[in-house]
């Protein structure tokens, strides 16, 4: 009973993960400029990776593999936004702008 439930959960997570990864790959193609594409790409690194890794964790059961997978996820969640930030910073720094109107630099909190 329990096993079946876990395996269904794992399947659901994997399917959702694959669907999301496809979705955001399409977003990567559809969005009009670099910064918007960045939203599509960055995402697949977070939730999509999380769902697939969790799906695998449920398949593996509680073992050393689980711990390793969780470490992978943790590191991915630390490093991938950092890489995204560095890339966005580099583009901004290099003077990559989509159009001048979008540069709204007003801070109203």
């Amino acid at each position: 009973m329990w096993d079946i439930l876990v395996s269904y959960c794992s399947d659901a997570l994997l399917i959702t993960g694959s669907f999301l990864s496809l979705t955001f790959a399409i977003g990567l193609l559809r969005f009009p400029d670099f910064y918007t594409r960045m939203h599509a790409a960055g995402v697949s690194d977070t939730l999509c990776a999380g769902l697939i890794v969790l799906g695998l964790v449920l398949q593996a059961g509680i073992s050393l593999v689980t711990l390793k997978l969780l470490f992978i996820l943790l590191f991915l969640w630390f490093t991938s936004p950092t890489a995204s930030f560095a890339l966005a910073r580099a583009a901004h720094r290099a003077g990559y702008r989509v159009s001048e109107q979008e540069e709204v630099a007003s801070s109203n909190s």
Binding site: A41, D45, S80, A94, Y96
Partner: peptide
């Protein structure tokens, strides 16, 4: 930058 972005995403995809 689009290319670098694609490489990064590709990296995550390969990991998964």
């Amino acid at each position: 930058f689009d290319r670098i972005l694609a490489v990064n995403t590709f990296g995550t995809k390969i990991v998964l």
